[in-house]
């Protein structure tokens, strides 16, 4: 398996709290890797490290053989031109229309003529099913449309690496399935390396080639779908069977919690 991203011994803190604990993982090239795990387990934080928005306290993150954890300034900008990111909240620029949002990286990084940019933007918006909405502002769109517009923007520079943070969270099942279809389509058409954070079971089984499961900042599972289904790790089973995790507390422990000591 050829890897696109190699993370070794990565540890991160928010203040004094250790959020990611000595993670070592690799993400295969030209495959869709899904990062799963319960709310607050550190998925977004991991993703932000992979796109170098945050720097780890310890460890290395190698993308195409280069350690981005030690990269700054213009080197980092070069690397960033080859990747696209969809944020959990889409993060479209609210002061710009959809067309301007998608055109932004093209205008900033290329010397393409306006008519060419126009055509590219229309292609990207059509790809995500938003043709005709070019003149809308993000505030005039629904959540699902914003997510799709975010994907169009992430795709603007034809990146090699795409990162999606919860593309289908907060969407109705039909729209969510539509987004999964879109992700599959992108994957087939462009054979990109895709990293998708999600906690929708249906999504995982539709789009994933490779699954990484986090729990409280630790990796509890890494492997393909068949291995996931066969895994006997209790956290994986709980996740797959959608059981509520029950915490068994002794009376003394419970007393400790309610007395706050």
């Amino acid at each position: 398996m050829e890897t696109a991203i190699d993370v070794k011994g990565m540890t991160t803190y928010y203040g004094e709290r250790e959020v990611l604990k000595n993670l070592t993982l690799s993400i295969p090239r030209a495959k869709t890797t899904v990062i799963v795990g319960g709310s607050g387990c550190g998925k977004t934080t991991l993703l932000k490290h992979l796109i170098s928005l945050l720097k780890p306290a310890k460890g290395t993150i190698e993308v195409n053989g280069k350690n981005i954890a030690g990269m700054f300034g213009s080197d980092l900008d070069e690397f960033r031109k080859k990747m696209g990111v969809l944020f959990q909240g889409a993060a479209l620029l609210n002061s710009l229309t959809l067309t301007e949002n998608v055109a932004l990286p093209l205008r900033e990084h290329t010397r393409l003529k306006e008519p060419v940019i126009d055509i590219i933007v229309r292609m990207k918006l059509d790809l995500v099913g938003l043709s005709g909405f070019g003149n809308f502002y993000p505030s005039q769109l629904s959540g699902g449309m914003k997510k799709r517009a975010g994907i169009a923007r992430a795709m603007a520079m034809d990146p090699e690496l795409l990162f999606f943070d919860e593309p289908s969270a907060g969407l109705d099942p039909v729209t969510a399935a539509g987004l999964d279809e879109l992700i599959l389509k992108l994957h087939k058409a462009f054979s990109l390396t895709l990293v998708v954070v999600t906690h929708e079971l249906a999504s995982i089984f539709t789009i994933a080639d490779y699954v990484i499961m986090l729990d409280a900042g630790n990796i509890v599972f890494m492997g393909n779908l068949d291995e996931l289904k066969a895994s006997s790790h209790p956290k994986v089973r709980v996740f797959l069977e959608r059981k509520a995790e029950e915490e068994f507390l002794s009376p003394e422990e419970y007393f400790k919690i309610i007395s706050g000591s």
Partner: peptide, 12 residues
């Protein structure tokens, strides 16, 4: 709203 982060990831 993470728009600044989005700019950074676009290399802007």
């Amino acid at each position: 709203s993470e728009e600044v982060d989005a700019l950074v990831t676009m290399g802007i």
